[in-house]
Computed example of a mutant assay.
Amino acid sequence: MKLNLAENIKSFRKERKMTQEKLAEALGVTVGAVYKWESGLSTPELSLIVEMADLFDTSVDVLLGYKMKNNRVDHIIKNINKLCMSFDNEAITEVDKALVKYPNSFEVLNIGAETYGYYGITRRDCAMMRKSLDLYDKVILLLPQNKDPNISEATIRGHMANILFMLGETDKGLEILKKYNASGMFSSVIGSYIAFFTDNKDEAVSYLSQGLARAFSGMTTSIVGFIFYFCHKKEWKKAIDINNYAIILIKGLKSDEGFNSLDKIHSELLATLSYVQKKSGKKKESEQTFKEAIEMAKRFDSNPEYSMNSARFIENDEDIIVYDVFGVTATESILKIFTKLDDDDLIIKCKELI
């Protein structure tokens, strides 16, 4: 069994910008002792290892560099997930066993927190929800062990906030979400809970607007990705269906207050639709859709407005900007789309009209 204690002591010390002298002073040992630990010439006593782990805000396992056999942990986690899928009470029993066996494993504590939270919320069991919060506190301390890109402190805090909402501690939950609301990732939830549970309904509008804009941007980006994927697979009907769905979505948000970024995206979607219609043998429909795309793009470019603030339901003091990857102008974007789709005929027609 290989340990990396010497290397880790040095690494953690430098991360915290501590000299060997400062670490020695904090632990009540000599500088020579610290030097020997980091050089691998000697090993600190267990009590000092525990003290250093606490000082470095990490676990003893991580400080030691001990890597347990993941196949056993993976098996336990898969089993717990399977039990949760059928809401089997045995899941909690298995979690408790795992926590005893692997008290310093990020993966085990995380699945434990998730399971207690899931069962606690479903059963409205306050004790289980409190247990979940306690476990999540420990999970955050063990984040250096995390290898899952889908998990971060922000996502964990989000789970904790949801549990606090279920416990009736709305203010605490909102405080957490507001603190970790990077790029508006929690805006929809913040706005919804303010509207649901507080008297200050007006505060919800800004968050709800940000959340709606973010959700729209994410959905249209995914839809455009699907359109190009379906075109690659020559699944034209699917491409038309999802393209039309995106256009319906945009029309539902567009207002009569002039043009904004929705019109640019709308023109781009009409361009992709004209291509797919052409490939589907719908020549007349393709020509009409192409004409609409160019006309809308030109109108937008004559007075471009990249904010979504004039869209329906959006009420925000600051501009909410929606970007796309195709181009600055709408006509430039359409030309780039046809280039990506490798359609020389539509490229030539586009250049003639713009």
Rank of each mutant, 00 (worst) to 15 (best):
L27E: 00
Y306K: 13
F290M: 08
K351R: 14
K14N: 07
K179H: 12
K340Q: 10
Y119D: 06
N81Y: 08
Y119N: 07
A98W: 00
L174P: 00
L46N: 08
D61Y: 12
I9S: 02
E7S: 15
A239F: 06
G211I: 04
S217A: 12
S39N: 13
P44R: 03
A330W: 00
A239L: 08
A195K: 10
S302F: 14
C126T: 00
L335K: 03
K147G: 02
Y118H: 04
E268F: 03
D61F: 10
K82I: 05
P304T: 15
I223D: 01
E169N: 14
L109G: 02
L335A: 06
A311C: 12
D324Q: 11
I9K: 03
F228P: 02
K97T: 05
G191C: 01
D74T: 07
P144T: 06
S280Y: 07
E285N: 02
G158L: 10
K283M: 14
M1G: 06
K14V: 09
Q145I: 13
Y118P: 00
K254Q: 14
N89C: 11
L3E: 15
V325G: 15
C126K: 09
S47T: 15
I9T: 08
G40C: 10
S261W: 04
K201G: 05
T155G: 14
L262R: 00
N316T: 10
K10C: 04
I248S: 06
K14F: 08
K278N: 14
Y207S: 08
D61G: 02
H159V: 10
I92D: 00
A213E: 02
L83Q: 08
T115S: 03
I92T: 02
L249A: 14
L270I: 06
P44D: 08
S39E: 15
D256M: 05
K97N: 09
R312Q: 11
N70F: 14
D74S: 09
K78P: 03
N150A: 15
Y306C: 11
I314T: 03
S11K: 14
P149Q: 11
E203K: 04
K10H: 11
W236Y: 14
Y245C: 05
S47P: 07
G120I: 12
E175T: 13
F186W: 12
Y207P: 00
T115R: 03
L353D: 15
I92F: 02
M296Q: 07
A297T: 01
T30R: 00
N162C: 13
R157Q: 11
N4V: 08
V139K: 02
S42P: 01
V29D: 00
F259K: 05
N104V: 06
V108C: 03
V50N: 03
E268G: 02
R157N: 11
G120S: 08
W236D: 09
D345Y: 11
I163N: 04
S217T: 10
E153S: 13
M68S: 11
A6E: 12
K340A: 14
L48V: 00
S307I: 09
A53E: 03
Q145F: 10
Y102C: 13
C126Y: 08
S183V: 04
N162L: 10
S86H: 01
I80F: 05
A297W: 04
E7A: 15
N70H: 13
V29S: 00
I151A: 09
S11P: 03
R130N: 15
C231V: 01
I337C: 07
A154I: 10
C84P: 01
Y180M: 04
M85G: 06
S261C: 15
